[in-house]
Design a protein around this nucleic acid. Structure first.
Length: 304
DNA sequence: AAGATTACCTGAAGGC
DNA sequence: TGCCTTCAGGTAATCT
C-alpha cells in the first residue's frame, strides 16, 4: 500500500526523468482521472522539470510544450496519487503492458512510464500552480519535517483516537495504516488513546517513533506486501521489519505477548496489549453513566 | 462541527 | 472442485 515511504521511493526512482520529454499519452480506463482530455491536450510535447513527493502525492513539474501567453499558467503540474494498488513503472516501450494498465506516457528515450492500478483507488490530474496550492493547503505536516512542538500542537487539542489522527492527512501528510500501527507500537501507545490525553513524555515518544519508522522504511525502499513496487519494478524491504502490522496472533518482539487486531477508524489496527496499555475508559457521559448504573442493578442475562 | 462510519473497487483467501 | 462471502485500505461523502 503506497504510503509515505513507498511514494518517496517511487519519486526518487523517477527523479532521473528530469529533462525527458513526454511525446504522447494513451489511456485505458479513465474513471479515476480528472479531466483526461486536459491531460491529453497539455502533456504531449511537455518536458519534466522536477519530480517530488507531497504527502502521498507524486508531483511532476512540467514545462509546457507551447509557452503559455499567460506566464502564471506555466509550469503545469501532473499529480498522481497511487491510492491502494497504483504503480508507476518505467518500461521499455516494446514490453507488453501488465493487466490493469490505464495510462501510458511515451518518453523521448524509447521508454514508457506506465500507470497500473488494479482497484483504481488512485487518482490523476493536471493542475495549474494556483490549483496545486489549493489542493495542498489543507494537508498537515510532513512526518519527516515534523517537530515535537508541531505534533503537540496538532494532537494535543484533539479528542479523536490517536490512530485516527495519524491516518488523517489534514493532521500529518503521508502516514497510512502500516506506518501508523508501527509508529504506535514503537511509541508504546495504544491506538485508542485520545490525542488530548497524551502526556509530554508520550508525545516525545510518538514523535521519535514516527520519524524512525518512516526514515527506516524509506531506507529499505518501502513495504511490499502484495502490490507495491518502485519505479523500476523492484519490491521494498520493510515488510521484514514489521512488528505489529498484520502480525495478530503472533508474539510481540518486545514482550512476547500476543499481538491483537481490532478496528479503529474503520481500519484493521494491530497492537500489543501489554506494551501498548489500553486507555482508561473515557469519563462516561451522563447518558452512559445512567446506563451502566442500570446494568449493575439489572444485569442482562448471560447468553449460553 | 468534530468525530465516526460507509462507499468505491478488484483479487485473494477461506469456508463448506 | 467451485461457488460464495469476506477482507484489504486510499480518500471523500455522509451520518450523528
Amino acid at each position: 500500500m503506497p504510503e509515505i515511504a513507498e511514494v518517496e521511493t517511487v519519486a526518487r526512482g523517477l527523479r532521473p526523468l528530469a529533462g525527458r520529454r513526454i511525446l504522447a499519452v494513451r489511456f485505458g480506463k479513465t474513471d479515476f482521472i480528472d479531466q483526461p482530455d486536459r491531460i491529453e491536450t497539455l502533456l504531449p510535447g511537455s518536458r519534466v522539470i522536477e519530480v517530488r513527493r507531497h504527502g502521498k502525492m507524486l508531483l511532476f513539474r512540467m514545462e509546457p510544450a507551447v509557452p503559455s501567453p499567460n506566464p502564471a499558467m506555466a509550469p503545469i503540474w501532473l499529480i498522481v496519487h497511487l491510492g491502494m494498488t497504483g504503480q508507476l513503472v518505467l518500461h521499455e516501450a516494446a514490453r507488453p503492458a501488465a493487466p490493469h494498465t490505464h495510462v501510458w506516457f511515451t518518453l523521448d528515450d524509447g521508454r514508457e512510464l506506465r500507470y497500473t492500478d488494479i482497484r483504481r483507488f488512485g487518482h490523476m490530474r493536471i493542475a495549474s500552480p494556483e490549483e496545486l496550492t489549493t489542493l495542498v493547503a489543507p494537508l498537515g505536516a510532513d512526518p519527516l519535517e515534523l517537530t515535537v512542538a508541531e505534533l503537540r500542537r496538532r494532537l494535543g487539542t484533539r479528542h479523536a483516537r490517536v490512530k485516527a489522527l495519524l491516518l488523517d492527512q489534514h493532521v500529518l501528510r503521508g502516514l497510512g495504516n502500516i506506518y501508523a500501527d508501527e509508529s504506535l507500537w514503537r511509541a508504546r501507545l495504544h491506538p485508542m488513546r485520545q490525542g488530548s490525553d497524551l502526556s509530554e513524555e508520550e508525545m516525545g515518544r510518538l514523535w521519535r517513533a514516527i520519524r524512525s519508522v518512516v526514515s527506516e522504511a524509506i531506507r529499505l525502499g518501502g513495504t511490499s506486501i502484495s502490490d507495491y513496487v518502485d519505479a523500476l519494478g523492484r519490491r521494498g524491504g520493510y515488510q521484514k521489519r514489521l512488528r505489529v502490522y498484520r502480525r495478530h496472533g503472533r508474539r510481540c518482539a518486545r514482550c512476547s505477548a500476543t499481538i491483537e487486531r481490532v478496528i479503529v477508524a474503520g481500519r484493521g489496527t494491530h497492537f500489543c496489549p501489554r506494551c501498548q496499555p489500553a486507555p482508561r475508559p473515557a469519563r462516561a457521559s451522563r447518558h452512559s453513566r445512567a446506563a451502566s448504573a442500570k446494568k449493575r442493578l439489572h444485569p442482562a442475562p448471560r447468553l449460553r
